[in-house]
Design a protein around this nucleic acid. Structure first.
Length: 897
RNA sequence: GGGCAGUUAGCUCAGCGGCAGAGCGUCCGCCUUACACGCGGAGGGUCGCAGGUUCAAAUCCUGCACUGCCCACCA
């Protein structure tokens, strides 16, 4: 018996991804297959990568995001498009600065110890190491990125784009500086925008605190304190009023009274404001204008004093008197102790509520008043919303359109300044006299100057004599821009705007943006706004939103939870194609992905199955030439038809971004149809089948290539082809090979074979034993059909001496007896009851016909078309077409019996 | 408080008007000359609950329950 391993020593029995992956990844780069053909007449298909932050290495979310993009790029390239995928990385603002600060911490240093310049040097050094790692890892994933266009959000070109964009917006008056309450992270020591705050549900306490009443002797209030409810007793030190709802009958007599602020020698007024919810707590609220956004606004309305008791470092300020220097948490504890001591705590309730935290470090946000730069997005967001409503930006799945528009329509001004050092320094210059407060704006009375370079003079001092302006110099705004500012320019900064490369016209707007829903507002919405503002065109016409990678139990993967599945480890262990297949086959539109270590085994096995199926074909090529001219018989017609249907379905799924469906269709076809049935049948008639085997294999490799590029390239070579699959055409379904009759007939035979196998198994006939088979059919007319395909049944059931008769039905007991003589009797009457099937189908056809009649009547009614909403009419028409098509299919099916 | 998903086999999930499915796990039998990372077979389901529409509902509509996510100045 010839051993297959000695027969083809160069093809190992088990697929070993490691042996080939690096080779192909290099090949694609070396052959410049990812570079577009700008001068070709092919229509462009362009994706710009969501640039990973340079914070470390590739995680599963990156692997998913980039696998999906690569699938689209490869598919479109094979489908005749001029495909371009632009790579790059993001400086990542706070996220990256935090990473380096953590490194410094291990050296027991802070960024202030190093100073701005030295600290930035460290960051650039880190960027160099981390950024290139990520790009290399993307290459290992197989990503067909055009590396010659790699950008970094802080490189020279992107910085030019940021500068230009800032100055344009500043000139329009949309960027302004203002003293506002912002979300302050006391750990990162910077302001954050509203969407950079993440709310976290916490089991907290609601403290009811007594504020003694000082004035008034109206009925019922003698000696009683006013009780306020708060979750933050420590802010009491900054209270400048208490408030009630104007129409609250319980408190209508006490408006304008005075109460004693506990622990502080201070009297504060009772004000009335409609923002107070009478149903909350006691209906009385303490007002701390310096430390709560709602109170801040209330303070503005009532001209209340702002008493800052918590500083930018999260510690109590000197204003907090004897509590100064304590942290927020310590202060709360101390305050409560002191209040208890004075009997001023009425009660403490459990109170679950959500607390704002920093999206980068998780520290509880402190609302603080500070000077910040803001971008008024009113006009931009309106334009962006309208563009989306008009269909200029289509979001898949559509369920995200509504929340996206809701956000866009309710935008408040964007706080774009950050008090960190890593990022684009704001191009504003102040003309200042000399030493003084830290921030240059506090040292000058001159208006700030927006400029690309350090300006030589400001508007006010420009025409004065040098003596008058002695000591005057210019200092740049120390703040940097929110990292998402440069991200919002990404779709055109990668093409070197404001001095774009010549092919910019062809490649902008891009085709599709592929991203997870967690940055829909943070990034996608802002790209649309900036695209319209600076290019007058939306940056992409489609947005493909994929899910978030979660662990086995549905939790988000995070280092702190220790539930991360590292894509690099999985690639190493199971192969990159297996990783890609897992991610692809789990990417159901609108759903998050749940991935665990063992998700990969199935995908690895699938790769191995394809490997061995191909190996089988290769082995048989050696036995003789494939005969193109062998007449096609049923199983050939069947598999050819199934292949066309598979190609049709896969393309359709890809077009609607249903990557999971495309992957599963291919899996099902290759394993359960091609391998399990056709390849088995082919063994009995290799000479006649070889050509079809090769055809289907070659087509399948092409169909599968975008999802599993490595193994398919390797097998393509094994098939004796040269070049890359990327240069081959993506299979299109050919109607001439569609064969409903063959599919129906094969389905019947497959059912028969299954039935026989079941009986064999139930009767404990060893798989190796041949059996004699008696098939009992319902009608004489069916005999010829089975007779004609006896060889299939013989081969797949290991049967010989098959006899077919009509009405041979006997109880299964009889079959048992017969098995002893290795004869199996299989009644087919019950298995495939043609009459019953026909009746069922006839009923369905009747239903469809009735439905169609009704629709027709409705649509031909002129009143309906006139009065019904447009969508209603369209829906009816669509349903009519659908039903008609289905009816046709049904009738064909019945006819095939 | 508002919005959006989800609830289908022991587990993870497809299906989304026309015969309830896959992978994994379980059980039985097989190293059948591509593959034991494999082959054949079996068992396993009131499709969350309650109504409604329909000739026909896991699928469409209404309500409810639970889970998750997003949004909101829950002091």
């Amino acid at each position: 018996m010839p051993d297959s391993d000695t027969k083809s020593p160069e093809i190992p029995k088990a697929y070993d991804p490691k042996a080939i992956e690096a080779r192909w990844a290099d090949f694609w780069v070396k052959e410049k297959l990812a570079e577009p053909e700008a001068s070709s007449k092919k229509p462009p298909f362009v994706i710009v990568i969501p640039p990973p932050n340079v914070t470390g290495s590739l995680h599963m979310g990156h692997a998913l995001n980039n696998t999906l993009q690569d699938i689209l790029i490869r598919w479109k390239k094979m489908s005749g498009f001029d495909a371009l995928w632009v790579p790059g990385t993001d400086h990542g603002g706070i996220a990256t600065q935090n990473v380096v600060e953590k490194l410094l911490k291990s050296e027991k240093k802070s960024r202030y110890d190093l100073g701005r310049e030295k600290f930035l040097e460290r960051l650039w050094q880190w960027k160099k190491e981390s950024g290139d790692t990520i790009l290399m890892q993307l290459r290992r994933l197989g990503c067909m990125l055009d590396w010659s266009r790699t950008h970094f959000t802080m490189d020279e070109k992107c910085s030019q784009a940021v500068l230009r964009a800032f100055l344009d917006l500043y000139k329009k008056g949309w960027i302004y500086r203002g003293k506002r309450m912002v979300n302050w992270c006391v750990r990162c020591r910077t302001a954050l925008s509203d969407i950079e705050v993440e709310f976290e549900e916490r089991k907290d306490k609601l403290y009811h605190i007594r504020y003694p009443i000082l004035s008034g002797k109206a009925d019922g209030w003698q000696g009683k304190p006013l009780v306020v409810a708060t979750t933050r007793p420590e802010t009491l030190l900054g209270d400048t009023a208490v408030a009630v709802h104007p129409d609250d009958p319980r408190y209508e007599k006490i408006h304008g009274w005075w109460v004693q602020l506990p622990l502080v020698d201070k009297e504060i007024a009772v004000i009335s404001d409609a923002a107070v919810d009478p149903k909350f707590g006691t209906g009385v609220v303490k007002v701390t204008p310096a430390h709560d956004p709602a109170d801040f606004e209330m303070g503005e309305r009532h001209h209340l004093e702002q008493v800052v008791v918590i500083g930018f470092d999260g510690k109590m300020t000197p204003e907090a008197g004897r509590y100064a220097g304590l942290s927020r948490e310590e202060c709360r504890k101390k305050i409560l102790e002191d209040l208890e001591a004075q009997g001023l705590v009425e009660k403490i309730e459990d109170y679950p509520h959500s607390v704002g935290t920093c999206y980068r470090c998780g520290t509880v946000i402190e609302p603080l008043v500070s000077d910040q730069w803001f971008l008024n997005t009113k006009e931009m967001s309106k334009e962006a919303g309208d563009a989306t409503r008009k269909g200029g930006v289509k979001i898949f799945p559509d369920s995200w359109t509504k929340p996206y528009l809701l956000w866009m329509d309710n935008l408040r001004d964007w706080c774009i300044s950050r008090q960190i050092w890593w990022g684009h320094r704001i191009p504003i210059w102040y003309c200042v006299p000399g030493e003084g407060p830290e921030h240059p704006s506090l040292r000058t009375s001159c208006p700030p100057v927006a400029s690309a370079d350090s300006p030589g003079k400001c508007g006010r001092h420009g025409d004065r004599s040098p003596e008058e302006t002695a000591g005057q110099h210019f200092e740049q705004e120390p703040d940097v821009l929110d990292t998402w500012f440069s991200s919002a320019l990404w779709p055109f900064s990668v093409f070197d705007w404001p001095d774009p490369v010549p092919e910019f016209k062809k490649y902008y707007p891009t085709s599709v943006l592929v991203t997870g829903h967690e940055i829909l507002y943070l990034w996608v919405a802002r790209m649309v706004m900036f695209g319209l503002a600076f290019q007058k065109k939306v940056p992409f016409s489609q947005v493909f939103i994929h899910g978030i990678v979660r662990d086995k139990s549905g939790k988000k993967m995070s280092k702190s939870l220790g539930n991360v599945v590292d894509p690099l480890v999985m690639m190493e262990k199971y192969g990159t194609d297996a990783l890609r297949f897992v991610l692809a086959s789990q990417s159901v539109p609108g759903r998050d992905l749940q991935i665990s270590d063992d998700s990969f085994v199935g995908a690895r096995n699938f790769a191995n199955k394809i490997w061995n199926m191909s190996r089988f074909v290769f082995m048989n090529r050696g036995t003789g030439p494939a005969s193109k001219d062998a007449p096609l018989e049923l199983c050939d017609r069947w598999i050819l038809s199934r292949f066309q249907e598979t190609a049709r379905s896969v393309t359709g799924s890809l077009e609607s971004y249903n990557i999971a469906q495309a992957s599963r269709t291919l899996y099902q076809f290759l394993w359960s149809e091609f391998c399990d049935w056709y390849v088995e049948l082919a063994k009995a008639r290799m000479k006649e089948s070889l050509w079809i085997l090769e055809q289907i294999l070659s087509g399948s490799l092409r169909l599968l290539h975008p999802i599993m590029p490595f193994i398919t390239e390797e097998l393509w070579r094994g098939l004796g082809r040269t070049g890359s699959l990327l240069l081959e055409e993506y299979p299109e379904p050919e109607p001439k090979w569609m064969d409903k009759e063959a599919e129906e007939q094969m389905a019947v035979l497959m059912d028969v074979v299954s039935a026989v196998r079941t009986v064999r198994s139930e009767m404990n006939v060893p798989p190796g034993n041949k059996i004699a088979l008696v098939l009992s059919v319902a009608e004489d007319s069916q005999k010829s059909f089975y007779q004609e395909h006896l060889s299939y049944i013989r081969h797949l059931c290991k049967a010989e001496n098959i006899s077919i008769g009509k009405g041979l039905a006997k109880p299964l007991k009889a079959a048992t007896a017969m098995v002893r003589r290795t004869q199996i009797f299989v009644p087919l009457e019950g298995l495939i009851d043609f009459d019953k099937e026909k009746t069922r189908l006839a009923k369905e056809v009747q239903g469809l016909e009735a439905d169609l009649e009704k629709l027709k009547a409705r649509l031909s009614n002129p009143d309906f078309k006139k009065n019904a909403p447009v969508e209603e009419v369209q829906k009816a028409e669509a349903r009519q077409a659908e039903s008609a098509e289905k009816l046709g299919r049904m009738r064909d099916l019945i006819a095939s019996f």
